[in-house]
Structures are given as structure tokens and as C-alpha cells.
Amino acid sequence: MSAATSAPGGPRRIASRWVGLLLVAPFLLYVLTFLVLPLASVVVLSTHQVNDQYHLEPAWTLDNYQRVLDPENLPILLRSARYAGLTSFFCLLAGYPLAWFIARHGGRHKALLLLLVMLPFWTSYLVRIFSWMTLLQTEGLLNGALLGLGLIREPLSLLNTPFSVVLGLTYGFLPFATLPLYVALERLDGTLLEAAADLGARPATTFWKVVFPLSLPGVVAGGLLTFVPAMGDFVTPEILGGVDTLMIGNLIQQQFLASYDWPFGSALSLVLMGLMLVSILAFLKLVGSAESLA
């Protein structure tokens, strides 16, 4: 081998460095144009203010962040967290038995059953949420059935309540909880269940002492994957909710599309992002400790 080509920093080495850069360049350009720049502009925008002529002007102020904590805005933020938390909880509650069934009793049909879990994604989310409207409205199917059976005298007002919003969110995000739970339960060693029974544990004890602790990574992942999108969702509360069930997503949408207060909308978006980031970091820490257990 000649000394010229094998020397460190030789022409061949430099050439390969350029090839490498060339290969990642399209992606870098994409990230720069569609992620970094817009994000930076949102950050800059959040320090602007709207003047009397409804024009944006730079103000280099943090007032917009202050307004997030105002008495008319803070409850919306807290409500979003509450709805997202409830959504996560109900998704896990419903997803756990579903994932258990597919993972432990699915047999040859596991792939098909998983496909069925994801089948709703083939239809537009909007269409599916609208169909919940027809189910829940005063003259809807559910009220019709309950009235017909004589279980209620007057139709229940289900729509435009916290109930209908959390129900819609839970319905929408259920697959996101089911899949990580499925993964965790699928890799659970069946002989551990036998070992627990062998040592005198009844099924319920086996679940709480062995199955649940070992499925924690899936529970945490499922919880996060439902909490984060539910927290930022605005379609569901828009369609199934009312004035009292506004979520932070609706608030942001209003700033941009209705009241044209882009700086405040940007501040809200960044606060939401920060909250998500914190919950993801907390999640990674939780998973880390859950993983080291499992």
C-alpha cells in the first residue's frame, strides 16, 4: 500500500468526509428550513406585541409569558393537563386488558388483532369524532337507546361536557396506549406467572406483584404517548366540547386564527412545548428506573 493514500488526512480521507457531508446535507437542510427556522421565529414572535393598528411590532418583552398565568388563561392550561391525565388513565385502563389479550391469547392471530387496533387510523380523525357527535347528542343513538329501554325519562346532555371530551380523547388515543403495553406484555416470560402461582400467589397477587411491575415500561410509555397528544389536541374539544371545556390547543388556535394575537399564541405554544419536554424527561427517567428493574 502506498504511503500517500494511507496517510491520515490524505486526499482519500478528505474526499470521504465531503461525501459524508453531501449525504446528510439534504436532511440537514430540511431540518434547518422546517424545524429550526420556524421554531426560532416562534421564539422571536413570542417577544413581540400587537400595537393599536393590529400590527406586530418587536418589543423584546416577556409579557406574553406573564399572560399565560392570567386568571382567564391558567385554568385552561390546568384543565388541559387534567383532561390529558384522565385520558391517559382511561387509555391505560382500557388498553391493558386489550393488550394482555392480544399478547397472551392472540396465538396465530396476533398480527391481525394488532392491525384491527390500528384500523381506525385508516379513517380521518375528524370523521370519527363527528360520528361520536351523532352518538352522544340529545337525539342521538345512545340517548335514543336509553329512552327506548325506559332507563331514563329525559335525554341526558352528554355532548359539550368534560365527559364527552375525555371520552373522545380516550377513544382517539387508545391505540397509542395499547401498542407499548402490548410490547411489554408480549415479552413477559410466561414461566414467571407459573413461578408465582407455584409459590402460592393467587391470580390477583401474581398480577400486582409480578405482571404489573414488569410491564411498567409499557405503562409509562403508553401513558406518555397518550398524555402528550391529548394535552395539545384542539379538534376533540372543538367538536365534542363546549365553552367550559376549552383546552390549551383551542386557546392557541384562537390566538392565531381569531384574535390575531400571534405573540401570545407563540408564547402559549412554547409553554406547552416546555411542559411536554418536562414530561418526556420525567418519562425517560421513569423508564430508566423501570427498565433497570425489568
Binding site: T191, D198, L199, L214
Partner: peptide, 20 residues
């Protein structure tokens, strides 16, 4: 009778120790 109702214990081939 179910396993937890028997005074019998097993040493499993893969040990089946609880990893957590």
C-alpha cells in the same frame, strides 16, 4: 387443584427468577 393450592414447589429449567 390450582398450583397455588398445592404444597409443591418447582425449580424451573430457566429458573424463572423475578427480575424486578
Amino acid at each position: 387443584l390450582a398450583p397455588f393450592q398445592r404444597r409443591v414447589n418447582t425449580v424451573f429449567q430457566n429458573y424463572a427468577l423475578f427480575p424486578h
